[in-house]
Design a protein around this nucleic acid. Structure first.
Lengths: 120, 120
DNA sequence: TTAATAATTGAACAGATATTCAAATGATGG
DNA sequence: CCATCATTTGAATATCTGTTCAATTATTAA
């Protein structure tokens, strides 16, 4: 947040017209927040691997822990995060819990990201 | 990292075959790291607005601060981050510094993200 | 019912991140 | 040269994030 909410009597450097035009092109706060949230969830190497590995496959927590070389607890915490954002869903079978991707939009975004890093 | 590097003599819950198959589909560590970095930089509402506002426009730091309602210093710090990742470039003109986007891949990713949140 | 096991949870901790503040830099004009 | 202004920078701080550890839940089988 800016501190300077007081009347600006002194000379300021901004360009009225450009500022007004740009303000008109701004995203709504709700939009920028959701967009950032969406990207942020993909912004961790372990979650990236998790999402990649769960694409078109179902896997139990324990297998995921072995594959990602993480503790079961750490995996479970990350899965909860993805669950809360409806990115993965789960199916229970006895003691086991099997996870899969539950968001094909995210899949597209993920693939677009992969392409991006491949030609950089 | 997992602690359990000791020989696993006790019963473990993972499924050998599934694990092996999944390991084969893993991204290289370098890939997952870069992919996560790319997404992470888009994972902040202020940076989202910055990138959006700089798309096809050039703007000086002071104008950006007014538009985004942030301090000049905060904007400058964020711009440095984007600069270091070659997402924005700048042009100097006297005391002023004008920034623009410098990465069309990011632009595509950004638009894909926008689409994503619009049908959710 | 008890023991064992897969997974989840919450607290605690270390490390990363975003902002603020004060000081520094670099350019312009008097 | 000096004062001013746009921007950058570094240190300090508060908050957020991801992991670990220990405890808990839920399910199965003895």
């Amino acid at each position: 947040m800016r501190k300077n909410k007081e009347p600006i009597c002194e000379v300021e450097c901004f360009h009225e017209e450009i500022v007004t035009e740009a303000q008109g092109r701004m995203l709504l706060p709700e939009q920028s927040k959701r967009l950032a949230e969406t990207f942020k969830v993909l912004g961790d190497p372990n979650r990236v691997q998790l999402i990649n590995v769960l694409t078109n496959r179902e896997m139990c927590v324990c297998d995921l822990a072995v594959v990602l070389d993480m503790s079961v607890s750490a995996v479970s915490h990350q899965l909860r995060l993805l669950r809360n954002l409806n990115i993965v869903k789960y199916r229970k079978d006895g003691k086991m819990v099997y996870y899969t991707l539950d968001d094909h939009h995210i899949e597209r975004l993920f693939k677009e990201g992969l392409e991006h890093i491949s030609h950089t």
